[in-house]
Design a protein around this nucleic acid. Structure first.
Lengths: 214, 214, 214, 214
DNA sequence: CATGAATGAGTATTCATTCAT
DNA sequence: CATGAATGAATACTCATTCAT
């Protein structure tokens, strides 16, 4: 890792918001495409730029480093997942636990189903590249989203904290999703996945919720 | 001319099985120790050798590359976990589902509890360095071990396949363990972890097992 | 992980044909200059780059390795010699054997005379670094050029093949040149060399030519 | 080239003249065998020892370095050739020029004919590894031997120095031999070689001898 | 006498990054 | 605004050589 000599604020022009956005997208897509062929450590910036069809210098107009690109890719998709979760809650009106959780899971699976290969890459990248800090904070963000969903259910006891239940449930859901998509071709059987995850998630929730309240 | 044509099997002296094993162990320990201080990408081989108290060349007597060392470390611990699982089954005599699973979980947690920091490193390393292929095969090995445990329980229906149930249950358990240990200092509350995991695992098992049999 | 799997064609930027050619020339000159001071095995790439006044990476923009540089240097000069031979024939109009051979030898000697030190380096490098395959093909190219020259002489029997005669004659000429230049300081007595080589070459040619026709 | 720290007289036991000579021979043979498969630069000492069936340390009991081994191999064969030349003269009694030269050439060719592959290796090694100094001194030794042979001929003018004639003649002979053997499989047509070399050598000798005396 | 485990100096090589055009 | 030639810091890795057994 070539150390930056001073610590001056690196004068690199960040391209205007204009249509030049294309390059950014092209770079990200090239990156994901390359990740499909070889491990992260062997993908060079030169190669990414080449596949993206932009100049080498242009890469640096959009990203500070390969790591930054990886983080951006992961972050983008992670955010999409989180937003899907949040919007589920705000779009389904009143809901009981089973319905709310099923809806949220359905929503996520619909997203995966649209591009299973890319999501496989996402989970791989996330495993390999998101640093511990980012991983933990994203984890907490998900737990929080699930907690809100659970506590918003009509049949969840008003005063019972759902944090721990949400954590366990999310761990299960996340693990199932990640593993299924990581397996690659052929893509997962999304129907079975939906059924199993929904059922197991609810069971976990009940088991732990009750227990904690003991 | 460092470019080695891919013909001869590279005549590198692999030290005999004797007590020269020490060096190998020292290198692995040095590696884990260093991983505690800085991310994988910043740990140089020279540094590992130095901390291990061996010569640089000696490193290459035992491992082909830093990646290989990482893989070996991960594999070692993964194997230990798998063996613990298998031996649980063979040491507890007759058991019902709840007791068997609880015993297996206890066993694993006992292992983690003995060296939580190292296991945290293990899970981080595994996330970042084991390649997809290894990850998937280890995953299947664990699923298989859990399947055997479940099917060996006195109260599990003779003819019901436990593979899918085991998969889901393992995903939950693995996720919980990994996440807890990944969080680093302070180490996890193993008591709570044991309780939550055991309870959730059983609940999952029931929920999915029943469902599949529909 | 320096081990490059042999799949992609290594995306190294080969600078365009433009006047960036300078660097290539500078590197070759630096190499020859260094070779004058120390044996091949002790000339490091870093040193070559430094003497050439280019960056280390720039070396690799133009040559794949030190060996490749050596081969390129040898090839360049070998080609020059071959071209001189070919052009001799096309520039002297009609000629008899003695005149043609004398002209060709004169031409080559003139080239050596212009830079005896460098040509000494050339023959040394060629001995030590050109691989067998290259050596043999260059050899044949020279034989072929001499054959053409001989057969083009007005007094060479129309239907007599000159290949074998050319081979022997070239072996003599090449050996004399190489050895004379290899001896280093003081440089060869080019006058004597010209006289001896010319005389011996013709004698050989006669002796063998006659014999073969027996 | 790891520099030797001090310049103390390196205390390594040189094996006694006993039957342990076998190892030395085994090492040399292994070296030549390996040279048949890959270029000098890629043959490691470890490999040589392994193929020779001796321990790594044993190599150093017999040779100081790979270069020394190469030099020894070259020197051995060069010496054999020189001795053959010298002994030719002393064994054929009185001789005229044509007979003497023919006998010497025959003698050398007989030697090559006994092991063409090995002699091919020899000439390759000699090209690539004998340093300039050794090359020049060996060259002079040969020239001297030929000079003696020429001057010893009954029909060579008493007071005419043969040095220059010998030099040219040897250059031709050596070039022809080396090139023929370097070409590898199939081995040279020794009959044709003998005829061509003998004829050309004599022609050269006459041409130059006369000329110099002019 | 032979061995081969251990050593680390020395080098090639890569690739992120800059900046003149 | 984009480009890609040039750069060199940082590292992996090899292999001759030693020396305790």
């Amino acid at each position: 890792m070539p150390k930056r000599a001073g610590n001056a604020p690196k004068p690199r022009r960040k391209p205007v918001q204009s249509r030049a956005q294309e390059s950014s997208r092209a770079i990200q897509e090239a990156f994901v495409r390359l990740l499909d062929e070889k491990p992260y450590g062997q993908v060079t910036i030169r190669e990414i730029a080449m596949v993206a069809g932009v100049g080498l210098g242009t890469f640096y107009d959009y990203f500070d480093s390969r790591e930054a690109l990886a983080r951006a890719c992961v972050h983008l998709r992670t955010k999409a997942l989180l937003q899907a979760l949040a919007s589920t809650q705000s779009t389904i009106g009143a809901y009981d636990l089973a319905a709310g959780i099923a809806a949220a899971i359905d929503r996520q699976i619909a997203i995966f189903e649209a591009a299973p290969r890319e999501w496989g890459q996402h989970f791989l990248l996330e495993r390999q590249k998101s640093d511990l800090k980012y991983y933990l904070s994203a984890y907490e963000a998900f737990v929080e989203a699930w907690r809100a969903l659970i506590e918003g259910a009509s049949d969840w006891p008003q005063d019972q904290p759902a944090a721990e239940s949400a954590r366990i449930m999310f761990t299960l859901i996340y693990g199932m999703f990640a593993h299924s998509l990581l397996r690659g071709r052929p893509g997962p059987d999304f129907g079975a996945l939906r059924r199993d995850v929904t059922r197991a998630a609810l069971a976990c929730l009940m088991a732990v919720g009750t227990g904690t309240a003991r």
